[in-house]
Amino acid sequence: MEGLLDTEEFCCSICLDLLKDPVAIPCGHSYCMECINDYWRKNDHLGVFSCPQCGQTFSPRPVLNRNTILADMVDKLKKLELLGDSQIYDNCVPGDVTCDFCTSIKQKAVKSCLVCLASYCQNHLQAHYKSPALKKHKLIEAFVNLQEKICPHHDKYLEMYCRTDQQCICLLCVMDEHKGHDTVPAAVESTKKQVKKKKKNYLSCSA
């Protein structure tokens, strides 16, 4: 059954997910209606619109209509459960963090956002580099249990370490219940512990 349909043929080359409200543009390539509209909206002032895949240009802007045949085929694909409860994982190995925004074919996450509390593959991460508002978000290496990195009291990143209470805290904690305590950046404390651990292992091996 799986060989009957190639799921990649029903994926939008802009969002890389299964086509939603699929439309075919004059050159023959298909996209999600929202994706191609967003792509063309950036060139409204130029009056020339191109295909993201082949580069063919159109003027005026083509009128888009939902491709009902293609939409039905995507629905059948979902009903066959090729992508239903058992998701397809691309370029992922056990233990990898997967992208929270890949709905069909899961890609490996490369970064996690401490503001969105979500992990992103290289493609879905682009918005964080391009959008002025998202550029201010704090990105870290992809992390499985993001909630563990967030302060339960202030919903802020645990970027400090309180040596007095021996726990990770956020900047608001430093100003609040941990005021006056011996605090350092969490990265500094982590590096210190790694050095001490290596030194201890070296001494035990030398004994």
Rank of each mutant, 00 (worst) to 15 (best):
46 L>D: 05
41 R>E: 10
39 Y>M: 05
38 D>W: 07
48 V>H: 09
63 V>C: 04
33 M>D: 10
32 C>F: 03
27 C>G: 02
32 C>P: 02
40 W>M: 03
60 P>C: 03
47 G>A: 12
48 V>N: 09
49 F>R: 01
44 D>T: 08
41 R>K: 13
27 C>M: 00
27 C>Y: 01
28 G>C: 03
25 I>Y: 00
35 C>V: 05
31 Y>N: 11
23 V>T: 02
65 N>D: 07
49 F>Y: 14
54 C>F: 09
44 D>F: 05
30 S>W: 00
47 G>Q: 09
41 R>T: 08
30 S>L: 01
58 F>H: 03
55 G>A: 10
31 Y>L: 12
49 F>W: 04
43 N>K: 08
60 P>E: 02
37 N>P: 00
38 D>C: 14
42 K>M: 12
54 C>S: 13
34 E>H: 11
24 A>E: 14
59 S>V: 07
35 C>Y: 03
28 G>L: 06
27 C>I: 03
47 G>D: 11
26 P>M: 09
62 P>Y: 05
38 D>K: 15
44 D>R: 09
45 H>W: 11
56 Q>D: 13
27 C>W: 02
57 T>Q: 12
45 H>S: 15
27 C>K: 00
50 S>P: 01
47 G>N: 10
58 F>C: 01
64 L>E: 07
52 P>T: 11
59 S>T: 13
50 S>E: 13
59 S>E: 12
58 F>T: 01
66 R>K: 14
48 V>E: 10
37 N>V: 08
69 I>N: 13
54 C>Y: 08
68 T>V: 15
52 P>M: 08
56 Q>G: 00
55 G>Y: 01
59 S>H: 12
45 H>T: 14
32 C>D: 04
49 F>M: 04
24 A>R: 14
53 Q>N: 15
45 H>C: 14
42 K>S: 12
69 I>E: 14
30 S>V: 05
36 I>H: 07
51 C>Q: 10
58 F>A: 01
31 Y>I: 06
54 C>V: 12
53 Q>D: 15
58 F>Q: 01
23 V>D: 02
65 N>F: 11
68 T>K: 15
45 H>G: 12
67 N>Q: 07
26 P>C: 07
22 P>A: 06
37 N>Q: 15
58 F>L: 01
35 C>I: 02
42 K>E: 12
39 Y>A: 08
60 P>T: 05
53 Q>W: 10
32 C>K: 04
31 Y>H: 08
24 A>F: 01
40 W>F: 04
22 P>V: 08
51 C>K: 09
49 F>E: 01
67 N>V: 03
27 C>L: 04
39 Y>Q: 05
39 Y>N: 07
43 N>Q: 09
43 N>I: 00
36 I>M: 11
